[in-house]
Amino acid sequence: CHSECLGNCSQPDDPTKCVACRNFYLDGRCVETCPPPYYHFQDWRCVNFSFCQDLHHKCKNSRRQGCHQYVIHNNKCIPECPSGYTMNSSNLLCTPCLGPCPKVCHLLEGEKTIDSVTSAQELRGCTVINGSLIINIRGGNNLAAELEANLGLIEEISGYLKIRRSYALVSLSFFRKLRLIRGETLEIGNYSFYALDNQNLRQLWDWSKHNLTITQGKLFFHYNPKLCLSEIHKMEEVSGTKGRQERNDIALKTNGDQASCENELLKFSYIRTSFDKILLRWEPYWPPDFRDLLGFMLFYKEAPYQNVTEFDGQDACGSNSWTVVDIDPPLRSNDPKSQNHPGWLMRGLKPWTQYAIFVKTLVTFSDERRTYGAKSDIIYVQTDATNPSVPLDPISVSNSSSQIILKWKPPSDPNGNITHYLVFWERQAEDSELFELDYCLKGLKLPSRTWSPPFESEDSQKHNQSEYEDSAGECCSCPKTDSQILKELEESSFRKTFEDYLHNVVFVPRKT
């Protein structure tokens, strides 16, 4: 048989008469490798580009789960590009990614509803959504962080984005990388972005840091009482949809009607710091009717980097990364020049730590249904340095008659930039024990000054392991946590139920 035959053949030295091919099969003959313009397919066939392209389009058009959109890589027609490569849609070739590779997620039936953290986790790592997304989240724990972890990498949506009755959302900033909504599939009414009845939605994105392009379709905003109209108009300008909307697409009466839409800028007039305090004062603000001013709200939190936005980490279910302080308005003076500047002394802060701070007014709604208010920009203030805590785990070892090696770990709280350490030492008198000992005694162990690591005695271990207080009263049991108490109650309830079950099964009433 021919060298490319495997198993047997019907005619000697003829690659077209093989029972099976050793390498690849091409047009009725066995070959060692697939010549151009053919590609290896499933490690035994040679196919042309049209064959591989037909497989790709067949799966793409069917949208069946589990099928493969075949691509070409290293002269092979394979189910998908290997790690580190992405497909070129024009020629199906796998090309190296520039940075992290995109991950295209194809949605069944063309859309997916995100109504819980669990459903959001199914899209973790996706960068391109081939379909439409509907966000409908009523509640949950730590929602802002969970949504950002699972949806934060999405850069492109081919269909539309719909935010509907998501009472738990305060902001859409968890879509931190969303840059493009194509609108290839539109919501009824030709809408590519749809926001309806979101009672706590206050911000779409921080438009000073976020760009969003909507290729096709219109915007729809109705019944978002805490979303200011200025935020919607800003989205029109940034996304390129200005002029597409009709009169009733953006409701003037049901958007922002319960919001404090600040239209003035508060400026800080005085800032002073110490290692654990920050004193702030800002310019006074009074609405047209000074009785509408209820006070100020001061927001602050630790910020290692200057990239904080107002609604980071917030949701309507209680999660809030900001510390909020309510401040009463100052006494009002008739003389504008003698107006008191409101302020606040922030206490209990960490030394040498940068804080993000902003302040906003708290006002009631005027009778004319106009909203007044003022808010400052987010500023960054760093507390002063102070003395560091003591170095940890000092170790001293003498390696000769004239040297001592000293080692330690950095302090747990540096409280500033540590530039150097101060080492103090003092000579001590020799131990009298060394002169009084009889060095001729056998088995004498000389006193040693070398360091030995501390260890816990058996008594201390027994005390720590004991669940009861000892007789001397030195140790006591740790208080039980809520989960331990709940577990004990469940076990007790189970024992009672099981005992009742045994009584009912074992003891049967005697027939009379």
Rank of each mutant, 00 (worst) to 15 (best):
Q306I: 02
L252Y: 05
L345D: 15
Y167A: 15
Y355M: 02
N334E: 02
M297S: 14
S319D: 15
G343V: 02
P388H: 14
I327A: 06
G152M: 05
F175P: 00
T371A: 09
Q245R: 10
L172T: 12
E187D: 15
F220N: 04
C261A: 09
K234L: 04
W205V: 03
E246W: 02
H106M: 12
L279T: 01
I404C: 03
N130S: 00
H210N: 03
S192Y: 01
G125Y: 05
D312I: 14
R165H: 06
K209Q: 06
L161M: 07
N334G: 12
K177L: 05
S321R: 12
R176Q: 14
S333P: 04
N320R: 14
S376M: 01
L266G: 01
Q339G: 14
G159P: 00
K242M: 12
L133D: 00
L180A: 11
D312T: 13
N142L: 11
N399C: 08
V324T: 08
K209T: 13
A259K: 13
L280C: 04
C261Q: 03
Y270S: 08
Y160F: 11
L186R: 13
S230T: 07
A374G: 13
N142W: 04
L294T: 09
I135S: 00
V390G: 02
S119G: 13
S338W: 05
G373I: 03
T383H: 00
I188H: 11
L294H: 11
S402I: 03
S269P: 01
I114V: 11
S338G: 09
R138Q: 15
L180G: 06
Y160T: 09
L362Y: 13
I135L: 05
W282H: 00
L298C: 02
I405R: 09
A149C: 14
Y300S: 06
D249N: 10
H106Y: 11
Q306E: 05
L229V: 15
D197I: 01
T113R: 03
Y305S: 06
N255H: 03
H222P: 00
F193H: 01
K218N: 02
E122S: 15
N136L: 10
D115Y: 02
N136A: 05
P336A: 00
M297W: 13
S319P: 08
L345H: 06
E368F: 14
H341G: 14
E368T: 12
Y380E: 01
H341N: 13
G240N: 04
F193T: 02
T254R: 07
Y270V: 13
N190V: 11
E146Y: 15
L219T: 03
W322V: 08
C105W: 00
L180M: 05
E122T: 06
I214E: 00
V238R: 13
F268R: 00
Q245W: 05
G125Q: 14
N263Q: 07
F290Q: 03
N255V: 03
G348H: 05
L349S: 01
I250D: 13
T371R: 08
N224H: 14
R247F: 11
T213G: 11
L123A: 04
E148G: 06
K407T: 15
S171M: 04
Q203T: 11
T215M: 08
E302M: 13
M297F: 01
P336K: 04
L133E: 00
A168L: 00
K177F: 06
L345K: 06
L280G: 00
W286M: 06
A149R: 06
Y191H: 11
T364S: 13
L345W: 15
R138H: 14
Q382C: 04
N307M: 03
Q121C: 10
G256I: 03
V170L: 10
K253I: 11
R347M: 06
Q199H: 04
T213L: 07
K267A: 10
K277T: 09
P388N: 08
I405Q: 09
G131T: 02
L212D: 00
K277Y: 15
P394F: 01
G189P: 13
D312F: 13
C261V: 04
E283V: 13
G217S: 03
A356N: 01
K253W: 14
E109P: 13
V128W: 14
V238L: 12
S376N: 01
G152H: 10
A168T: 14
R272W: 14
A120T: 12
E155F: 08
E236L: 06
K112Y: 04
E283N: 12
A251W: 15
R332W: 06
Q245C: 08
E368I: 12
F193V: 12
N211P: 08
N142I: 00
F358T: 04
V128L: 05
E237P: 02
A168M: 02
V324P: 03
L266E: 00
H210I: 05
E122A: 15
K242D: 14
A195Y: 00
I114E: 00
Q121V: 05
R124F: 03
T386Q: 04
L392W: 05
L169F: 14
V363P: 10
F296L: 03
L362V: 03
G295N: 11
R179I: 12
